[in-house]
Simulated assay, not measured.
Amino acid sequence: MTQKAHNSPESSHPGRLLGYARVSTTSQNLDVQLRALTEAGVPVELVFTDKISGTQAERPGLAALMAEAQAGDTLVLYSLDRLGRSLVHMVTTIDELIRRGVALRSLTDTIDTTTPAGRFQLNVFVAMAEYQRALIVERVQDGLEAARARGVQLGRKSPITPEQVRAIHRLHRAGLSHYKIHRRVGVSKGAVGRVLRGEIKSLAHVSIELPADEIDVWDAEAAASASMSYPKK
């Protein structure tokens, strides 16, 4: 992000006032933010909202706002952090709006990019955010390098054992559904699918071929559930 991106021409932004409000869970309400936006002069029909629960990434309200905003408009927010669920996303969205000639006014942060002082405040805010992000990346990288130097094996370990892989294939051959397999073996349905499609590379070496008479408790239960006959030992 360049310094120039936040030093937009000092026009009076004669366009519309747009508003955006967001809460983090569906159980929260938007009343405080909506009241502040309307009191700031934003028409109700130009206020875009999102209620996001959990880690949901898609925000239709913000997407609609970005599609509506035009050069000369001013986006009014209760606070800047309403724009993003993460620092990176917030800074990226701010940068995109400024590049498109949309001014920003944050009511609680007292930032207004239609004024020289407001643009300076935003530049300082973004610079600090980028500095903080760079520090985090550097610390993570240093930690990874130190771990490698100690001989630590990095990367996520497979949550599935070779025994579970064999059991999944045996139950699948017995005709059980992914749901029944995941209940019996104790792994997620997604993991069952990945095993059967051969997508867990760390377990690709596991042999799943068994002698015809090698039947264990998994096969016995599978036979009962699938109404199939198995050779007796």
Rank of each mutant, 00 (worst) to 15 (best):
S12I: 05
A36H: 11
E163I: 07
G198F: 14
K201V: 12
A57L: 10
E199W: 07
R194S: 12
D95H: 15
L107P: 06
A174K: 01
R22C: 03
A134N: 08
V76K: 03
D95L: 14
H169F: 04
H169L: 02
V76W: 07
T25G: 04
L135Q: 15
R100T: 00
T93Y: 07
A226Q: 06
K189Y: 08
P9K: 09
Y78F: 05
E138Y: 00
A64Q: 14
S177L: 03
I111H: 00
I94R: 00
L203Q: 06
K180R: 04
R59Q: 11
E10K: 11
L83C: 04
R173K: 07
H13R: 10
H182Q: 11
E68S: 13
E45F: 03
P211L: 11
S11A: 08
P162V: 05
E58A: 13
R16G: 02
V88F: 09
K233V: 11
A149F: 03
A69K: 07
Q132W: 08
R166Y: 00
R16Y: 00
A146C: 12
T108E: 01
G61A: 05
A69Y: 04
Q164K: 01
A174T: 03
L135E: 15
G175E: 04
L62M: 08
M90Q: 09
R59H: 10
A223W: 04
D213I: 05
L30P: 01
L176H: 00
S106I: 02
A220K: 01
R133S: 14
I136V: 14
R133N: 14
G54M: 02
I94D: 03
G151R: 00
M1E: 09
Q33Y: 02
V42M: 02
L104D: 02
G143V: 00
G155S: 04
H89A: 12
G19V: 01
Y131S: 13
Y20R: 03
V23E: 04
L30D: 02
A117D: 15
P211G: 07
H89Q: 10
N29R: 05
G101D: 06
I181A: 01
L65E: 05
Q132K: 10
R156P: 09
E209D: 14
Y230H: 06
R173L: 10
R184E: 14
S27G: 09
G190K: 07
I160H: 06
E45R: 11
V91G: 13
L65N: 01
S207Q: 04
S11K: 07
E199P: 01
V140M: 13
P14E: 13
A226G: 11
L17W: 03
F48P: 01
V152Q: 05
L37E: 01
S11M: 05
D73C: 02
P116R: 08
M1R: 10
I200T: 09
R85F: 07
A40W: 09
P159W: 06
E138C: 02
I215S: 00
V206K: 05
S106Y: 02
V185P: 15
M90T: 07
P231L: 10
W218F: 15
G193L: 04
K51N: 10
Y20L: 01
A5W: 10
H6S: 11
